[in-house]
Design a protein around this nucleic acid. Structure first.
Lengths: 218, 218
DNA sequence: CAGCCACTTGATTGATCGATCAAATATGGT
DNA sequence: ACCATATTTGATCGATCAATCAAGTGGCTG
């Protein structure tokens, strides 16, 4: 077998198992079996289980754009709709897994952040990486948004809504809480767009009208 | 020692350790040591570690109102401000623990929901219990909110914001993401209050004006 | 006082945990 | 071809895991 390919195979299997079962619940033996690797090989590339986790988190950092964000860019052109397309993509994942597993980064954040400082730093980096894409899309649509809006804060809020919604849907075993969270966020977003319309003298509804204001806007 | 007190002591210690370290990372031996109990006693009350977790979740279900919600009710009278007082109470907890540990229920939701069906059900019940309080406060303030607002959906959204914000703050080791999430939610909430003012013919700003609309409202 | 049952003691189980290491093999450079 | 280094093999380690159980203690009831 190719040498450099082994390391990548270990990372992919470990990433998947950490996602499926969590960090502590995943034994080294399981990783070895599913990756068809002996323990010596794994410990040749990674000095410990914690070091393996660090490798996985660096791997995730590299794969976010090609594996996740690229698909959104292909499918959706409008920067604002890209945000909701991304939220819908996570929804599809939840459908595929039957409301299980959730967000791999969110899971690790709550499981290991306190005890593994290096892992915590990289999880944070992954979140920053994620929200940077959102922030970029918000910047692209800056002229459609209120001038005083803190777009970075709003970008973080998108992640908050996504993670909070997924958590509730995993707990309930139902997509409704996730859908409801996105619906509330959509409503908030539409109110921002409407405000920007007023601000810049455009006719209200140039962008989109929040559901609670639709009567007044007519 | 009093007999029935042992069970409660085990539950309290287990709840604290699950919160501090997580479910899988907490060994039975640690629980026994910190609760000053022998293994036989623990297994007299709980048939397995999973059964102990179920006990902890039922215990949490009982303690939410007296330990968490009661303080909010005492401190704050206005139903809407109670929501933000609750969010501020979780903030205080994060300050106290230095952005560690987070929400005990949220942690368990992401760690065990997939593998322990009974635990998942009870975690869901805890979330339902939490949001029912919020829903109650929103209903109290129904006349200040838009008529078409789905108050249950909004109540779930409060939990979404809280959990998503805490996750990000644990990952970053900083309270800013949590504060930012609450700030964005406050802004959304204020826009709802303003909309209700318009809807019912009250002067705008009777309740509160969102930061992005303050210029227009004058 | 007798007897029952709830509760406690604490040593011990087999399984699994993460990790080690000497030996064998493969690879790449000269 | 040869050496040095990179990688793989797989048995094995002590520690820790959740869980068991026979023996004991203490309190309550009849």
């Amino acid at each position: 077998m190719a040498p450099a390919e082994t390391r990548r195979r270990i990372l992919e299997v470990a990433f998947r198992l950490f996602h499926e079962q969590g960090y502590h619940a995943t034994g080294i033996a399981t990783i070895l079996r599913e990756a068809n690797v002996n323990s010596g090989s794994l410990y040749h590339f990674f000095s410990s289980k914690e070091d393996l986790l660090v490798g996985v988190l660096e791997y995730a950092l590299e794969e976010l754009d090609p594996q996740v964000m690229a698909r959104v860019r292909e499918r959706t052109a409008d920067p604002i709709e890209r945000i909701f397309a991304l939220l819908d993509q996570y929804r599809s994942m939840m459908v595929f897994f039957g409301c299980r597993m959730g967000c791999p980064m969110g899971n690790l954040a709550l499981e290991v952040a306190d005890d593994l400082p290096e892992a915590r730093r990289l999880i944070h980096q992954n979140f920053v990486n994620w929200t940077r894409h959102i922030k970029g899309w918000l910047d692209e649509a800056a002229d459609r948004l209120p001038a005083r809006l803190d777009r970075e804060q709003l970008a973080n809020f998108v992640l908050t809504v996504m993670e909070g919604g997924i958590m509730q849907s995993r707990a309930s075993g139902d997509l409704a809480p996730y859908d409801d969270s996105v619906a509330q966020f959509r409503n908030y977003f539409d109110s921002l767009l409407t405000l920007a319309d007023i601000e810049s003298g455009r006719p209200i509804g140039t962008n989109r009208v929040p559901v609670f204001a639709s009567e007044d806007a007519k």
